[in-house]
Design a protein around this nucleic acid. Structure first.
Lengths: 112, 112
DNA sequence: AAACATACCTAAAAAACTTATGCATAAGAA
DNA sequence: TTCTTATGCATAAGTTTTTTAGGTATGTTT
């Protein structure tokens, strides 16, 4: 991600969460989705994304399905069963982290 | 930090924010304060903290003042003027990041 | 035709940690 | 009184995760 140096370590969780929501997505689609959702605040670089996808696949958390659309290659990724379970855990961790950070940087934020 | 791998890139901001609040702190004190504030969720490792403090000092954002308490050395750090300005910027960035992450991982969280 | 968007990829370097040590003093427990 | 834990500093080696900087190729817009 270009602008913010603060997201480190959460890229994998972001990927997993988006796949949980969307069912299946391909790499380029993920970069665009994140831009829209964060109003341009976060930009995933491809140099970070593709290796991350490959690693998650190697870990058995993602499955791939290749498709050809308009003569262009697309690699759709979706969660495996193990991936679904892992996503739940990582989201819980991320939420805890966010709450902790809120306590640190701005205890006045209301949290629910 | 031991338990959560998600905080990367935010350590410097945490340090700056705590110093803004507390006026001056020494390294060990920072590690303990973070543990308390986050209820043990985040643990800053000394291997991360001390190099970070030295770097912030080298960048002119922190001043050091050495003290001896109970025959033990303490290095108190406090924000320089440049440090105070930088802290404002980094906190704004961090808050934006947190809001973005909330949008990604849980759009139902209420934010203010 | 050139530029931009879509779509994949990797390698080298930098950044930011963890882990493992080391040193020293004070306090508490066995 | 010795052992362990807490306080307090520090650095070096290794790992992880990213950025930067390329590369390839097709489709679309100007």
């Amino acid at each position: 991600m270009a602008n913010s140096k603060l997201y480190k370590g959460s890229l994998n969780t972001i990927i997993l969460k988006l796949l949980e929501e969307q069912g299946k997505m391909y790499g380029y689609e993920i970069t665009q989705k994140v831009k829209v959702l964060t109003k341009g605040e976060l930009s995933i670089t491809e140099g970070a994304l593709y290796p991350a996808l490959h690693k998650l696949e190697a870990e058995g958390l993602l499955d791939v399905e290749v498709a050809k659309v308009d003569n262009r290659l697309r690699k759709y990724y979706k969660l495996t069963e193990a991936g679904e379970k892992e996503t739940v855990n990582r989201l819980a961790e991320l939420e805890e982290f966010i709450r902790s950070m809120q306590q640190l940087v701005n205890p006045n934020w209301s949290i629910n």
